[in-house]
């Protein structure tokens, strides 16, 4: 990639193993600011693990990941790489929004409380401002009437939209989506994807791990196909999805036609 100087995310030779199981075997990836990258691949290809490495929910074993010029989890000082303290890692994470497969809303808080928790508690925002922005975001994801509902009172699709609003509330430089529609009933997938398409249009930098080929086709700037812990091929969706060059991509995509 020629964009490495201006990349928002730079991953180089990322390796990760769980015990004897090697999940990531040398991932290189660049994401430009404003780019929407969709990572596709069969289950067990390591795509979710890679996403979780980007905000250090998993520590990597080899290589490095940089977000916005800062190495995740470590700092280079006088040519020595030092592991960051937990609180420094927390600061790095606080700039990255994440949406989980299982939504992971805080069940004891209303939709509004879920959204304002990090802005107030982590970013020290003033409460009125946080509430104002949270209401704006919940309105944007179509849940203006649900601000006082608890997660259990919401459908899966609504919960995931609250989770998206919660991630947006910290004004992230980068949004990570970990299979955001996989836990949803088919008829609820559309509302979440529509919300994500809107975000893509607004120029938010997004890395999306998903099985939704349709979303990749419409919203992605680039599709990355992973299998067996490596990036098999990547490129514009029109290229990778309609004319894949690698047999493994072809066989994966054939299942969706």
């Amino acid at each position: 990639m020629s964009m490495s100087e201006t990349s928002l995310v730079r991953a180089r030779n990322v390796h990760k193993a769980f015990g004897p199981l090697e999940v990531l075997k040398g991932i290189d990836l660049d994401v430009a600011p404003g780019e929407v990258v969709v990572i596709l691949g069969p289950s067990g290809s390591g795509k979710s693990t890679f996403l979780r490495c980007i905000n250090h929910l998993e520590a990597i074993d080899q290589g490095f990941i940089e977000v916005d010029g800062e190495q995740i989890g470590y700092r280079l000082r006088d040519d020595r790489l030092i592991k960051l303290s937990n609180s420094d890692i927390a600061v790095q994470r606080s700039k990255i929004g994440m949406v989980f497969q299982q939504f992971n809303l805080y069940p004891h808080m209303t939709a509004l409380q879920n959204v304002i928790e990090a802005p107030i508690g982590v970013h020290g925002q003033n409460r009125n401002e946080a509430v104002r922005y949270a209401k704006e975001l919940l309105n944007r994801v179509g849940l203006a009437e649900k601000i006082d509902a608890y997660p259990r009172q919401l459908s899966g699709g609504q919960q995931q939209r609250v989770a998206i609003a919660r991630a947006l509330a910290i004004r992230p430089r980068l949004m990570l989506f970990d299979e955001p529609t996989s836990a949803l009933d088919p008829e609820l997938v559309g509302e979440v994807l529509a919300t994500m398409r809107d975000l893509a249009k607004e120029g938010l930098t997004m890395i999306v791990v998903t099985h939704e080929i349709g979303f990749a086709k419409e919203a992605a700037d680039r599709v990355v196909f992973m299998d067996g812990g490596v990036v098999v091929e990547q490129g514009p969706p029109a290229e990778v999805l309609t004319n894949p060059s690698h047999p493994r991509t072809r066989s994966f995509l054939s299942r969706f036609i």
Partner: peptide
């Protein structure tokens, strides 16, 4: 994990 991902301390 979610709290951690949002940068909350322990």
């Amino acid at each position: 994990e979610t709290a951690e991902a949002f940068g909350m301390n322990r």
